[in-house]
Design a protein around this nucleic acid. Structure first.
Lengths: 231, 231
DNA sequence: CGCGGCTTTGATGTTCATCAAGTAAAGTGG
DNA sequence: CCACTTTACTTGATGAACATCAAAGCCGCG
């Protein structure tokens, strides 16, 4: 593992201030002893649909996709997850196995904490549990809201929405390299690959964006916003 | 309030064994003192989008719809909730106001518990918090799973799915009175009212169902299942 | 270097939303 | 309780939006 990224202890981890802010020092030490830190290259699968859930995980840095795999290769991407998105909360407390596959789409690092240890800490620390409840609730709000927004839009509106999502929520820049393929864009916003490509070309012709391979640069943000909102 | 339905105390409430199974007797008493029990007729609004969240609620009996209201009168129904669906968990810990409107669609009764009291109990009882985490997680799994199933189906598949949903999950009978209007069916499975009606008539002509007003009787369940699965 | 997966464009067809118009049912006020 | 208004329900006709099919170039990989 790349040593420059490795953190010596949970006590110095920047995440402590978020997820584990209310945690007692004693419990933080227990987590520190149990935790496993792993790095993932883009494309590598972190957990696979059907695998037993045995640890609680959270993303230190990087970007992930959460997807459902289907027999007919027409997968569905549920959500794109950043650090602080608490992806580890998805079904970790209610299911014995993962219902989703999680894959890195950028260089990422995750911490894995033994699930029984987490449960034990929760049982003995209601304050911590309450913050987890809050985080889980808010994560689900976000995912549902995104779905609702996307599903009521027409195809042009969906493409505009997703371009703005990566620009505003992920990279905070008007120019970025989109971390997923055209096919994956289609799986994320519920349309066909061909139409993703078609509408991206359309936007280029209309001088709304510049696009070359995975590079996207937003030229006319106002127009993009209008398409996203009224499409 | 109809006295025959009223429960004298949380300790005798049948829900205690589910939601509050791990609760300390002391805390159950506190809840009992604070709780408010209310009945609702079909059509009456229980909480409205935008209202401040000040209590934790759960459904004792009845049936609810959770929906998002929009300016243009094209609402979206998120989910149909039965007792034990823990609808009170939806955004109660992460949002200051309700993002959803909850409406009774059958005679229903709910208990309201002061939210600060609930939080206080959670903070002091990690075991209870863990069961809440589990319930919230499982409720969200259910809602998401339903959305995924519905969204990948064509219109005939969606109608078949929803007929089977009420038959298998809600009423456990092949004949029932559907508690929502054609328009609401459309809002629940993301299609137009006209097409709901059209496809229901089609199913009747094909002798898959009998239908008269709100009464629905499933005649050919095998065929309905095939339409739901392959549609 | 050839194979499979991704990307792109064009042509075609189907599904579904929309518009229109009429009937039935359910509230509402005098 | 009846006229009136509104909302729900129903069917048909039309067109737009989108999926599908087809074909070819591209790229990475074993």
């Amino acid at each position: 593992m790349n040593e420059e990224h490795k953190i010596p202890s949970c006590t110095t981890c920047s995440f402590k201030s978020f997820l584990f802010s209310n945690l007692k020092p004693k419990d933080l030490l227990r987590i520190n002893l149990s935790r496993q830190e792993k790095e993932f290259k883009p494309g590598s699968v972190i957990v696979k649909q059907g695998e037993k859930i045995s640890s609680f995980m959270y993303l230190r840095y990087g970007l992930l996709k959460i997807s459902i795999e289907r027999e007919d290769r027409r997968n569905q991407i549920i959500s794109i997850a950043r650090p602080l998105d608490f992806i580890g909360l998805l079904s970790v407390f209610s299911e014995p196995v993962y219902n989703y596959t999680v894959t890195a789409i950028e260089d990422s690092a995750l911490c894995f904490i033994d699930l029984d240890l987490m449960k034990d800490i929760i049982r003995n620390d209601g304050k911590f549990a309450l913050t987890l409840l809050k985080d889980m609730s808010s994560m689900n709000e976000t995912i549902m809201h995104n779905w609702l927004m996307i599903n009521r839009k027409n195809l042009r509106g969906r493409i505009a929405y997703i371009i703005l999502f990566f620009s505003d929520d992920i990279y905070k820049k008007d120019e970025y390299s989109i971390p997923i393929s055209r096919k994956e864009i289609a799986e994320l916003i519920n349309m066909r690959t061909e139409n993703v490509i078609r509408i991206l070309s359309e936007f280029r012709k209309d001088k709304i964006i510049e696009i070359e391979g995975k590079m996207i640069r937003i030229i006319n943000k106002g127009k993009l916003l209008r398409i996203a909102n009224f499409g």
